[in-house]
Structure formats: structure tokens, C-alpha cells
Design a protein around this nucleic acid. Sequence first.
DNA 1: AAAGATCATAAGTATATGCTAATATGCTTA
DNA 2: TAAGCATATTAGCATATACTTATGATCTTT
Lengths: 127, 127
Amino acid sequence: MDSKKFEKFFSALSSPLRLQMVLLMARRSFCVCELEGVFDVTQPAISQNLRILKDTDLISEKREKQWVFYSTNKEMLDSALKEFLKIVEAEDTFSEIVGLKLSDLPHDPQRSCEILENRKKEVLKNN
Amino acid sequence: MDSKKFEKFFSALSSPLRLQMVLLMARRSFCVCELEGVFDVTQPAISQNLRILKDTDLISEKREKQWVFYSTNKEMLDSALKEFLKIVEAEDTFSEIVGLKLSDLPHDPQRSCEILENRKKEVLKNN
DNA sequence: AAAGATCATAAGTATATGCTAATATGCTTA
DNA sequence: TAAGCATATTAGCATATACTTATGATCTTT
């Protein structure tokens, strides 16, 4: 499971400006100067945020004459969110994070906390 | 459309630690001291991040004896993401952001940029 | 090739974020 | 009610983020 991919993905959508941009560009493609007219930030700010969105594949660009048109990758957005929901439900996500099978961790905090603390110390020792 | 709700939501999931926590607590509930044993941060950091997750309704808490057990609201997670996908597809999302109907904005950048710039100036004037 | 327009990049700065250490609160049980 | 845990809160600090201004690169058209 590539957890970093989702961190970047959610991070890209956590900004008011970028979220609005993504919603806008889901309807149709926009060039930078159009976006400049919609939002109250300078052109470099638009470009920088477009880059962040592009780095997560949330948008694509298409050069046309002197303009660069950006549009939201709706299929990607859809599949990424659905993939995330699958990971939430996946059986092995637990052990990938904890390093223990779910069944090997007792429900009693008094015991489970001790087990986890010991594991932590061992991991630290091996570094 | 409550855009701020999704900003907070995505922001909550944009941290490595919180993302892992959410995935973990989707499998079963955890008390703070267990989480402390899983992750390499101090107890206050755990508590602070739990609070952020709780503020977005991504997790719920349940007191039991001296412990507080946290677990992921999977239904909420699921419905929020699906609601977001609906907003991406919604017809009126565009005009809510731009203040213009999609059909009122020509595809030609030369004209659309001018229209948008003028709109912006008018809005600034009324403030 | 020069000028004008569109977009990208870089440097600088203010604010937000995420941690730690210290401390407070609250619950449980003797 | 006092002691002992478990958890929450606060203050402080280092880093990350998100802008602005200034500048650079690219493309079009004359």
C-alpha cells in the first residue's frame, strides 16, 4: 500500500484554493489567465498550485497556441478515492502498520500496550 | 456546498501519522497508550492528532474504565468521499465558484479572460 | 528577429503545522 | 481521599506551506 501517494493526494486537496480549482476544472479546462480572473491571487500563485495538483496527477495540461489548458482528471480522482476506501477495508493494512497480526494483539490494553512497547524497543535496537 | 468541510477533511488525512491512525482504527478501536506503542511520537502528539481527527468526525471515542478508545467512523469516511465525488460532478458547482453560468463563459481565452477580469474588478468595487 | 503575451521559476516572508517538554485533568481503586 | 494511571492541554520551537515580488522562459505574430 503506497501510503505516501495518499498523503500527497489529500494534501493537494486540503487547500481552499486548490480544492476550488479542482472543482472548477472538473467542468471544463481552464488556462492560467482564466484562473487568474476567477481567484484572488497572483498569477505565480496560480501556477504554483497547478504544479502541486499536477504532481499528484489530479490535473492534466494541454498546450494550445499560446495557452496552457488545465483540466481535472476526474477518472483519476474517482479511482483514487475508491482505492483508498478499499485500503480502509483491507485485511492486511493493520499488520503492515503495526507489524503484528490483528489476532496477535489482545484486546486488553494492559497486555497490548506492553506488547507494543516491547516491539518498539526492539525495532529501535535494530537501528 | 460546504467546501470548508472537505478542506478540513482532506487536511486531516494529509498527515502521515493521522492517515496511519485512521487506517489502523478502521480495523479495531485503540486506546491512546496502544497508539503510543505503535507510533514513534510522544503521547501528547497522539492526543493532539486524535483531536484533529475527532473534529472532522473521522473518528469517535468511547470511554471505558480508565481508557479512552478511539475508532474510525468508516461509514462517515465512505459517505464523505462519495459526497465529494458527487460535488465534482454537480452541475452548479461551477457557477457557485465563478459566479457565472458555464454557458455564459466563452471558450475563447481572449474573451473569457476579459469577462472574468471585469467581474473581479466589480466585486472588488462593492467591498 | 523583435515585441507582446502567457506561463513558470526563484527568492523572500508571514503564517500554519506538528512536534516535544511540562503540566493539568480525570478516572479508578485501595 | 489519596495515589496511580491514562489522557488532555499548554507553551515553545523548528519546519512546512502559501503567498508576493521579481525575473526568466516560451510561444505567436508581426
